[in-house]
Computed example of a mutant assay.
Amino acid sequence: MSRAWTVFEPAFDDNPGWEGADLYDDLAIAQKLAREAYHHGVLGGVGGERLTWQPDGADCWNLLDGDEPTPVSIQARAVRSAVGHLARGPSPEDQLAMASEFRIPLPLDDTRGGYGEVVVQRDGISGRFAVTDGALVRLQTWVDGGGWCDVSDVGRAVAFSRSRENALETALHVAGIEADRHRRRTRAGG
């Protein structure tokens, strides 16, 4: 079962970058905003009283400047979606698949020394994951058997070589190691 509704899409000839181009669920709003964009963007804010909309069939409206056509029109389009999908929303697996980053807090008993976390990041190209320190500069990745290494030293192929499940499992392990290091440092006073 699917559900359909109508959206209204203003267009300036075939210019998709036009500032009035967007999707609206209300024709009156689409007409008002498209008219204003044309009035200010093309006419320089002069002569707006001459601008009117003329229907062109059942699902199209053209903007006229007096009796002259302009390059602006609005097209009604039907949009469909599965009702069940809308009612349920994405499945938990779909939600996980959309995530590009997971933050695993260090399991600290106290907050002396601040907050810490291990970050699992997805590579946008390969879709593989890395266990990282989350740094914006000089990003480090956890390499099994080697500990923390600069991504620039080991390369992205090595850093982003894990499945999501393996990366999350490794991140939990690394968070425990880092929490122990933190406890030892705070007990030693540094």
Rank of each mutant, 00 (worst) to 15 (best):
Pro69Gln: 13
His39Phe: 14
Asp123Ala: 06
Leu136Lys: 14
Ala21Trp: 00
Arg138Val: 03
Phe102Val: 09
Pro92Arg: 10
Ile74Phe: 04
Glu93Pro: 01
Arg35Trp: 02
Ser100Val: 08
Val42Met: 05
Asp67Ile: 06
Asp133Ile: 11
Leu64Val: 05
Leu63Asp: 01
Gly84Arg: 13
Gly114Met: 08
Arg103Lys: 13
Thr141Phe: 05
Gly44Phe: 01
Trp142Asn: 04
Val120Glu: 05
Asp25His: 08
Thr132Gln: 10
His40Ala: 04
Trp61Cys: 05
Asp109Asn: 14
Gln140Cys: 12
Pro69Val: 14
Ser100Phe: 01
Gly124Cys: 02
Phe129Pro: 12
Gly47Val: 08
Ile74Lys: 03
Thr141Leu: 02
Ser100Trp: 07
Gly45Tyr: 03
Pro105Asn: 07
Thr141Arg: 05
Gly113Leu: 08
Gly57Ser: 07
Ala21Glu: 11
Glu36Val: 01
Gly124Met: 04
Pro105Leu: 07
Phe102Thr: 04
Val118Trp: 06
Ser100Asp: 11
Glu49Arg: 02
Leu106Lys: 06
Pro92His: 08
Gly116Asp: 13
Leu27Gln: 09
Asp94Tyr: 01
Ala34Asp: 02
Ala130Arg: 09
Gln140Thr: 04
Arg77Pro: 01
Ala135Gly: 09
Ala37Asp: 11
Phe129Tyr: 15
Gly44Leu: 04
Met98Pro: 01
Asp59Tyr: 07
Glu117Trp: 00
Val119His: 08
Leu23His: 14
Thr52Val: 09
Met98Glu: 15
Arg103Gly: 02
Val118Asp: 06
Gln75His: 11
Gly124Tyr: 00
Thr111Asp: 15
Leu27Met: 12
Arg103Gln: 13
Glu117Cys: 15
Tyr24Cys: 04
Thr132Asn: 12
Leu43Thr: 08
Val119Cys: 07
Gln121Cys: 10
Gly45Lys: 07
Ala97Leu: 10
Glu117Pro: 04
Asp65Leu: 10
Phe129Arg: 00
Leu86Tyr: 09
Ala99Thr: 00
His39Glu: 11
Gly48Thr: 01
Asp22Tyr: 05
Asp65Gly: 10
Gly48Glu: 05
Ile29Thr: 15
Arg35Lys: 15
Leu51Asp: 06
Gly41His: 13
Leu63Ser: 00
Gln95His: 03
Arg128Pro: 08
Leu64Arg: 15
Phe102Ala: 03
Asn62Glu: 14
Phe102Tyr: 14
Asp133Pro: 03
Asp25Gly: 09
Pro69Glu: 14
Tyr24Phe: 15
Gly45Asp: 08
Arg35Asp: 00
Leu33Met: 12
Leu51Gln: 06
Val118Met: 05
Asp26Arg: 01
Gly84Met: 03
Gly84Lys: 10
Asp25Tyr: 08
Gly134Pro: 03
Gly84Ala: 11
Phe102Arg: 06
Gly57Glu: 13
Arg88Pro: 00
Trp142Gly: 06
Gly116Arg: 05
Asp56Trp: 09
Thr70Asp: 06
Ala28Val: 06
Arg103Cys: 07
Gln75Ala: 12
Ser91Glu: 12
Ala82Met: 03
Val131Ser: 03
Arg122Lys: 15
Asp22Trp: 02
Asp123Pro: 07
Glu117Tyr: 04
Gln140Asn: 14
Thr141Asp: 13
Asp109Val: 10
Ser100Asn: 10
Glu68Leu: 13
Leu106Asn: 07
Trp142Phe: 14
Glu93Lys: 02
Leu108Val: 14
Gly48Val: 06
Ala21Met: 11
Tyr24Thr: 14
Gly116Ile: 09
Val42Gly: 00
Asp133Ser: 12
Gln54Asn: 09
Pro92Tyr: 07
